[in-house]
């Protein structure tokens, strides 16, 4: 409730925003002053206010990625004050509210930083490298025809829950952004383990992990050193256990698959 919020007064903030014309241009942090920001606003709404101000001043608005604005789509990003999706745990940037900041704060906003995520403009990065990892093996073969009965294939509840937890990955790339090594292993492991745990994923199980890891390396992502910053910053709480499972799957597949 707004009335009960001790921080409910409108805020004046200093923003340091990464501006970059295109992927080739050199970028820099620009400083903007922004006034009368309601604590009830989401971070992205604050960015909208900034852009309205900039338009009135005849300045090119800041480009940033967003879509559903309810934490589902994985489109929003932003490295806010040194953290992926900002200081709050378990949320995307669109779910971050301005009440987490105080009047007079300086907020530094940067794009995801990783070679495989080139900056397209300002805060927008090209995250299609993750799509290509997914395309390399993150699918199952399904027969066409009639719709199968629900619960036709029995799956233990614990396995179904674990697979579902892995499947909640929204592919936002925060894991890569937060990782010191720029590793995409939390993402890849969520996709691999989700399918490896379920009966439907068994057909491509070995080839999948081999191809997805090969694509991950080809895209130029780093190698995991089990730091855990990815899982700590993941907006949907993908667990580091998935990376252990990815390692297990990969080692097993390398030594036993038919792919010479």
């Amino acid at each position: 409730m707004a009335g009960n919020n001790p921080n409910s007064k409108p805020m004046n903030l200093t923003l340091k925003v990464w501006r970059q014309k295109n992927s080739k241009a050199a970028g820099n942090l620009e400083t903007y002053q922004i006034k009368d920001i309601s604590p009830e606003m989401s971070f992205l709404e604050m960015m909208d206010v900034l852009n309205e101000d900039l338009l009135l001043k005849g300045i090119d608005p800041v480009a940033f990625d967003h879509d559903c604005r309810e934490g589902i789509c994985g489109m929003c990003s932003l490295y806010i004050n040194g953290r992926a999706h900002g200081p709050e745990r378990g949320t995307t940037t669109c779910q971050l509210h301005m009440r987490k900041f105080s009047d007079g704060d300086t907020i530094t906003i940067e794009p995801w930083r990783a070679g495989p995520f080139p900056v397209l403009k300002d805060l927008c990065t090209d995250r299609s490298a993750l799509d290509r990892i997914q395309q390399a093996g993150g699918y199952i073969s399904v027969n066409t025809g009639g719709v199968p009965d629900a619960n036709e294939i029995p799956i233990p509840k614990t396995i179904a829950d674990k697979a579902f937890d892995a499947a909640t990955c929204i592919q936002c790339g925060a894991c890569v952004a937060a990782c010191k090594n720029g590793s995409a292993m939390l993402f890849t492991s969520a996709k691999v383990s989700q399918l490896a745990m379920l009966p439907q994923g068994q057909v491509e199980r070995k080839t999948r992990v081999e191809n997805m890891v090969a694509q991950m390396d080809k895209e130029g992502f780093g190698a995991c050193t089990n730091i855990g910053s990815c899982a700590a910053e993941c907006p949907v709480g993908i667990s580091l256990e998935n990376i252990a499972m990815l390692n297990r799957e990969y080692i097993g597949a390398s030594f036993t698959s038919e792919n010479v």
Binding site: K16, W18, L29, Y79, N81, G82, R83, P87, T108, E110, R113, A114, G115, P116, A178, K180, N181, G182, S183, G220, F221, G222, A223, T225, N226, I227, G228, S229, A232, E233
Partner: peptide
């Protein structure tokens, strides 16, 4: 080999980064 590869993944560093909020010093 891994460290060199990992270091090259982020050619542009963050201007402001707070890794201490999400991981241990020794692991980094």
């Amino acid at each position: 080999v891994l460290t060199r590869r990992n270091k090259s993944v982020r050619p542009v560093q963050y201007a402001y980064n707070r890794p201490q909020d999400n991981s241990n010093w020794s692991s980094r």
